[in-house]
Every structure is written in C-alpha cells, then in structure tokens.
Design a protein around this nucleic acid. Structure first.
Lengths: 356, 356
DNA sequence: ATGAAAGCGCTAACAT
DNA sequence: ATGTTAGCGCTTTCAT
C-alpha cells in the first residue's frame, strides 16, 4: 500500500513535467530532431518512421510546447486587447467580433480591462509587450491624450478602436465611428419630427467622442436655423468619476426637462436609458412628452420600453474589421485607417412633437 | 535625405529585434548574467553597478522577454478562460470578476468562446495546454457530458463554473449555483402570490441546469399540493439550435398561455424577456394578466418594463471566487467545491394572481 | 562581486 | 533519411 502510494505520488510528480520531443525520441530510438521533423510532416522522414513517431507521441499524450516554439520563431500567435470593461455591452460585442477573426487566423486573445484609466492602460500594454504579443487592439484608448514617451514605446502593430490619434502613424492605426455624422443623424431625425427645442445629454469623461457628437448636434441645429440655448446642453462633470452612464442619464435629465426641451440626443444608449428611467419616475411619457435618441445600438436598446431610437454602430463588424486590419499589419500589408458610418434605427422612443 | 531615409529604415529594422540582456551587457561592459542579476535586484551586485545597469536598460527601452522566462520557469502566469460567448451578459460579468482577481495576482487572461459546442471547447482547452497556461476556468462546460479520454488529458488545475462533474476530482474542481434552490425560490414566490397554475419555460440545450430547475419547480409544486399539467412545462427543442434565449421565450410563451397558466418561472432572464416581449405583442399585461420570474439577475432585467422579478446569481462574485479557487490550486492548497445560493429579487413582473 | 556554462523545449542549418 | 549542433533569451548553478 505504501509502495502504491509512493508510486502514485511519483506519477503525479512526473506528470508535472510535460513530456517533450526528447522523451519521444528516446522511446522511438531516434534523435529529437527526427521527432520534430516527423511531427511537422517533413517529407525528409520516411513515411513509416513518421507514422511510428506520431503514434508514440499520441500514446504519450504529447502536447507541443508553444512557449519554446515562440522563443525560436519570435511569434507568439497572440494578440492583446484592452477594453474599458469586459462587462460593457458595447465592447463585449466588439470583442466577440475580434475573437471570431482572431480564432479563424489561429491567434489567441489576451484580454485586459483598463477602465478608462491611463495608468491601467499603460500597464496592460507593457504587460503585452513583455509577453511579446504579435499585435495590440486598444479600445477607447487614453494614450492619444498623453502623447508622452510611453506611447513611443509601442513597438508592436497596434490598432486603435474609437480613439483617433495623429501621433505615430507608422505603428498606430485606427478605426473609428463617425461621431459627428452620428450626431447629425440623430438631430436631423428629431428635427424631421418637428422638434425645435432639442437638447444634448453628454458625458464628461470621453472628451473626444463627446466633443464630436456635441459639434454635430450644434452644427445641425445651426444649419436648420434652430435656436441653441446653453441650458439645453447638459454634460456630466468629468470629476464625477466612476458614476455609470445610466446614472448620468438619470441625474442630468431633470435639468434638461426644466429647460424646456422636447427632444434629447443622448451620448449613448446607456445614458438614454438612464433618462428613460428618470422619466418613468417623473411620470413623463416617452415619446408623447419627450423624444429620446440614443447612440450605439446595444442589445438592451431594443428591449427597454419604449424601445430606443438610436444611432447604431456595427459593433461586431467593427471588432472583426479591426482584427482584420491587425492581421494585414502582421502580413506587412499597408492598411488605411477607416471611419465607419453609423446609421439611424427608428424605434419607439421618438415621435412627432406634440403641439400644445 | 536618402541617407536619412536609409537610416530611418535601418532603425525600424533594428527595432524589430527587441533588445536583450546581452545588448545591455555589451554596453555596460559586463556579462549577461550580471545584467540579469542586477535587473532582478540581486544583492550580489554592487549598488553602483546595479543602478548603472538599470539606467542603461531604461535608456535602451529594454522590455524583458516573458517567453524566455516562462520556458525556464515553466510558469506562464497566464490562465485560460472558456466562455460560451463573450457577448453573453451573464458571462461577461463573470469574466469581469475573474479578470479582477487575476490581475491582482499578476496573471493574464486568455479568453476563448466555445458557443456551447463540445469540439470548440476541446480545441480551446488543447490550445491552452500548448500554451502552457497555469490554470483553466471553464464555464458551462460540455466536457462533463462526454467523459471520454480528452477529459483525462486535462492536466492543468481547472475550475468548472456552473457545470458540475463527478469525474477527475483531483484536477477538476467546480463552483456552481444551486439551480434547484433557485427554482424553489422562484416557484415559492409565485405560490405566495396566490398562483396555482404555474408554468415552466425551459431550454433544451443546457440539460443539467435545466433539469435541476425543472425538478425544483416540480417538487415545489408537489409539496404545496398544487396541480401539475404536462402542458404547463414548455422546453425548447434541443435541435432548434442557435436560436437565442430571447427567441425561445417569444416562441414558447403562447402555448403556455393557452394552457392557462397565470405565472411562469423562466429558465433565465433572457427567456423571460422574450416572454415579456411576446406578451407586449399579444396585448397581455404583465403582471396583471401574467406573472413572470426570471433567473440570473443580469443588468438588463432591471431595465425592461416592467422590471423583472428574478432569481439572482452573484455573477461578479462567482467569477472572483472561481479565480480565487484557481489561485489556491496553483498554491497547492486544498480547496473544496462550492455551491453558491441564489436569492430572489422581487420586482415589477410578478404580482398577486387576479381573481376573475 | 562577477563570469562561464548549462539548460528550459524547440527548429533549422549543417553534417553525414 | 537521419543525427549533431547551435541558438532563441533568460535564470541559475558553479567557479573564481
């Protein structure tokens, strides 16, 4: 019994150290390079020996060591992805698209969350570098704002999703949605429904995209000769950090309502849903008393009541395309930055303005 | 100009091959092992030399090669996670929890989607093995159903999330939610509201959890002396593959309604929301005409109208706990499988049964 | 306090 | 057709 136990222990310990091509070589009575060649189907090895070696490998449960292969080839077949938060419905969908293409190209995905924090993002990127990922995908990146030395250290092919930058065009490529156009689509839609008092409910912690959507909103109003009142624009304070978008919508809605708007373009769907919930609490009917337009087109926007009219981003496609750009980069093809056009989906949260 | 360009090219080419400790050693006029020791703060190296080497390393933008370190230490500081789908709101939240703990332990996360497909799951696991991950986290695993040889090849510490198995207790650990209890909570809630005609709307492609929830439903009814009619149980055909849960709910609701139920316990929130949407289409008022109870407690369940009464799983905590189990396993601590208890959250989709 | 050398598991050039 | 050797970048004895 004691012996059995010791044996068992020994087996366990053995299994710790995975078997290598040398183990196979010893068993097959050949050299380790013959094994290597056989397993890689080299025509140099005779069919008979090749099959024999493969059989032994199978019997021994051989699993090739990708680490050793990487050290030699200096390719890890791994890409790093940084998102703001994994549970963010928008980026979850984007990552789904990324993973689809990555997998079809036999690349694995290392995922990190940076929570819109510059330091966390840098830490994640640095970690990717140490691990020698073949490429990096950055969403909502903060690095463009801090164009300091760290950015210069990004030496791996990198694609930025929804965060443009003018720096480092050689290594830093980008794919983004046309925020300005999206805002125009939203506001034009509200105008076409007869609204003349139109508000914008924005966020303070995503300055670039928020700024573009705000400009789209303002310019569309200007061109239509519609009035613009400062009180019709409500942007959550950047310092009010870690407040989520739903709460932003809830919090900012009342002041917009007090300012007398009949339609609101919201920074994104979560903000719009926050506004929607606030209205439910206040007894305001959507869309009779107020029209709401969101941005993104996350699944949730379809399932709230009323369903949300929103400017859609093709999330899955954005992820797939970004990954494809990275693949092209790895193949040393020249690629061009791309701007996706969002499109409006009319649903229940917007309607003709009520005359009163 | 031409020279500058050529130089630029050269620099680019150089930067391809990352600098190594040998490069630093050459520049510092010491051996590569001295550099290695200095960078790892070995007390053997004099303070002065140590600082000098670190300075040079910094100037040269040295980034240690984790691949080489892994080959030597046979530790990759990486774990593999398999989910059904990255965009699944339930597992997105679980993975968020996993990543939090993984990061605090300086582990990176490789993420793969298996879409409830056995082969895809095996492929992902095999890939993790080649990459020599330190541990694996499997959600909704199919391997327990196919207890074939592949399962035996799982040699890395592994924790199963929401998919129990009796095989391989040495390597395969698990953490799950008490499906049976959850079902009881849901049905008891409906009973407490006076419902006597209670249905179950289940899914066909997750046999284990679906079975447990069904049993909880049946036993609770039995114990309360309430009637059970076969037509009150609707389970979507397993063959009806790739149909999502929302559509399952939409599709199956009418037949349950025809069978005369006044309350329905749904397999999960997505199914319940599908049922909810179907009711909106049919002019059925929730909760006046019909009470609905979901399962999971995803964010979405709070934002639909009416908000969903549901049996909550502590998703974030499940992810965090599973990762902690894995960490303990890596530390060679003995761990015990754990079953989490779900809890009911009463919201707007359930109400006292209407007398008529 | 520092250098030389071995070795982690693999591939590939170079023999034979 | 197969074996020998070197080397990917690093850590770690073992010398000195």
């Amino acid at each position: 019994m004691l012996i059995l136990f010791a044996l068992h222990k020994e087996v366990l310990k053995m299994s710790k150290r995975k078997i290598s091509i040398e183990d196979i070589a010893r068993k097959a009575g050949v050299s380790h390079s013959t094994v290597s060649r056989a397993l890689r189907d080299s025509p140099l090895i005779s069919f008979k020996v090749r099959e024999e070696i493969k059989k032994i490998a199978r019997e021994m449960n051989y699993v090739p060591n990708a680490i050793a292969q990487s050290l030699l080839s200096s390719r890890t077949n791994t890409i790093g992805v940084v998102v703001t938060s994994i549970a963010d419905p928008f980026y979850a969908e984007v990552v789904e698209g990324i993973e689809q293409i990555a997998r079809s190209a036999s690349l694995s995905v290392l995922l990190s969350a940076a929570h819109r924090d510059f330091d966390q993002e840098i830490t994640a990127i640095d970690n990717f570098h140490r691990r020698r990922v073949d490429g990096i995908l950055l969403t909502d990146s903060r690095i463009s704002k801090h164009n300091i030395k760290q950015v210069a250290q990004i030496t791996v092919p990198t694609v930025l999703i929804n965060s443009q930058t003018k720096d480092q065009p050689e290594t830093l490529h980008s794919l983004s949605i046309d925020d300005y156009l999206g805002a125009r689509l939203a506001v034009e839609h509200l105008i076409s429904l007869g609204h003349t008092c139109i508000g914008y409910l924005g966020v303070g912690d995503r300055s670039s995209s928020n700024q573009l959507r705000l400009e789209g909103y303002q310019n569309t109003l200007s061109e239509s000769g519609l009035p613009q009142i400062p009180d019709w624009v409500a942007i959550n304070n950047e310092d009010d950090t870690r407040i989520n978008d739903i709460d932003t919508g809830k919090k900012m809605l009342p002041q917009l309502l007090n300012a007398g708007v009949t339609g609101i373009f919201c920074y994104n769907d979560m903000v719009a849903i926050g506004a929607l919930l606030a209205c439910q609490g206040l007894g305001i009917s959507i869309p009779q008393d107020l029209s709401l337009v969101g941005f993104d087109g996350i699944a949730l926007s379809r399932y709230v009541t009323p369903s949300l009219t929103t400017v859609c981003q093709p999330m899955l496609e954005i992820g797939r395309y970004a990954m494809q750009m990275l693949l092209d980069l790895l193949d040393e093809k020249t690629i061009e930055n791309r701007v996706f056009s969002p499109f409006l989906i009319k649903r229940g949260s917007s309607a003709m303005v009520q005359s009163h």
